[in-house]
Design a protein around this nucleic acid. Structure first.
Lengths: 189, 189, 189, 189
DNA sequence: AATGAATGAGCATTCATTCAT
DNA sequence: TATGAATGAATGCTCATTCAT
């Protein structure tokens, strides 16, 4: 699975044939179909494992942290870290999103991640630490910044994951406005 | 190109055959290869056009706005709007990222978008309106939130693009901390 | 279709690959799937044509013969003749009978043949020429002798079709009892 | 062998895999190849047994019957009965006929059956009971009617084997001509 | 005797691409 | 310009058979 995942990520799922996987592994083609019903199923299992692994990394990272805002920070750090260590799986997730037969797996994973992070955001709001608007939106926004910057700054440009994590945390906490600047009036009525 | 782009987005690039495209268009296969050297080249042109179109939408949106922070807001609104109107192209861009032969096109587009937005962020910093840290990072963070929330909230969950844009703007401006909350000390090891 | 039919008959349907057919014909593999949706469909069309051709041969043979008994004789002659000229198609029909996905085609053909011959048998009965028991049974019995002896005597042992036809006709007319022998009493009560 | 034979008949020989047989039997694949050198050999043994069993049924049926014509009748009854009780084996025989590697087994069986029945037909002719033409032809004709009507009327249409046997006997004895009708002159060119 | 993981040749089918018309 | 028949390499998958245990 690991070998296949890395090849799928490097060459593209459709571009990587079952033949090339088993050849690269030095095994017969039959053994592939002994363990997996189909190429699609293999990708499904890779994605399922990846999502599970990522979730566990986040869970472990925030365990024992009492401050909800800090729990969020730890979650961001854990995400960036996991993503940088498993860049091939991240690439695969992005691909899966684009094919209707795999997209549900990812959407379920997204929902799960939001559901995991939501209690902490909500707790932060209750504690008066976070802006009390839509907690679901807030959660998604945090995940969005983390994911995008993991891809561009860490995976594509090779920046250090921990460094980027701190910047992401700072951005999520304060936004881009200079401290002390009064929030500008909304544009719309 | 439009017909092909919509089919690629709906069925997947690899899943959509040249035959199905020309049949759907009621033309022969020869005419396809008269205009495009290959299926890959077609996708390349679709992506190039898409990137250009998105860039123009952003350029138009911020023209004539003197306030750099407001220019950023307008850019966010334009991005969300364009993405919601061209969801098939957005899906295609996400796919292109996952195959090494198309990824450079997208990476160039990403760079371009950062380059386009950077002057406004820098101007905002100079004017003392934005936090003076890394302007490139700030730009990428803004693009990341926009892109991710466009996909999840607008494309997948069908929320209104303008509504989401305002939330994105608010998040980018202020982050998630409750106003008045002093920034927590970094967690540093 | 003719080349494929002969190969299917000689080597067996499953044993003959699409590759071997197109290679034997000196064409590319794509051309096969341009004309036939699948290997199964090809066999279906071969069988349909064969059934149609056989039926026509019988129809032509009995046209213009006023005596119903003689029409039956002519039908037998035509069947034996067609079968001897199209032994490969006969073999294919026998095979088709043994696979559930092709069997319906043959069963329909059988029904059709019975339906074609039935009026003549019935007319013979009405005219007092044929034994008045079950006309459907009589029809099937005639077809059974013809088919079996075509296979064993003509196809397998190479006897002359016309000669065999005359013997089949004689058997069907009179049975095996010596002329003048009184019919033996039935065994059961 | 019985389980395999029934599956081969129901699903087709090529369509039934060795895996599905051993799984259905709850044994490992090794045990299959311990008892049979190959899948083909298994079918060969099934066919051999089937032919032997059918032959025995016929031999038993005619034992002790002094009248040669009645021996033939009993043989017909026994054939129909055996075929209706072993329809899966009959289907398998029909299939085997269509593949060159199995056909010899069936042809040998056919020859055997003719050889078994021939003495009785010959005896009938000698006794003046049967028409004195070609005894081999007469034998084959009888077998042909029996086999064909077993398949269509008994196996396919579900009629009672004993009932069909009586009709077959009647047809074989007298043919289709109404009793008393003078044999029509041959049509000869 | 028995297991079942492993093999790999072989199969039906697809599809980007070409080119005679 | 345009057609669509033709090509054939490549793909996902099957399955009879082997063999270490």
């Amino acid at each position: 699975m690991d070998y296949a995942a890395r090849n799928f990520a490097a060459e593209g799922y459709h571009t990587t044939s079952v033949t090339s996987i088993v050849n690269g592994l030095g095994v017969g083609k039959g053994v592939f179909y002994w363990y997996f019903a189909s190429k699609d199923e293999l990708l499904g299992e890779i994605l399922g494992d990846a999502l599970r692994s990522m979730r566990e990394a986040q869970r472990d990272a925030i365990a024992g942290e009492p401050d909800p805002a800090r729990r969020i920070d730890q979650g961001i750090r854990a995400s960036l870290h996991w993503l940088s260590e498993n860049r091939h799986l991240f690439v695969l997730m992005e691909f899966a999103r684009t094919e209707e037969r795999f997209a549900p797996i990812i959407r379920r994973g997204d929902d799960q991640m939001v559901a995991d992070a939501l209690p902490h955001v909500s707790a932060g709001i209750t504690a008066g630490l976070l802006r009390g608007e839509d907690p679901v939106f807030l959660t998604m926004a945090i995940l969005g910044v983390s994911g995008h910057l993991a891809r561009t700054l860490v995976l594509e440009q090779g920046n250090d994951a921990d460094r980027v994590a701190e910047s992401v945390i700072a951005f999520c906490r304060q936004g881009y406005l200079a401290t002390g600047t009064p929030a500008l009036a909304r544009r719309s009525a």
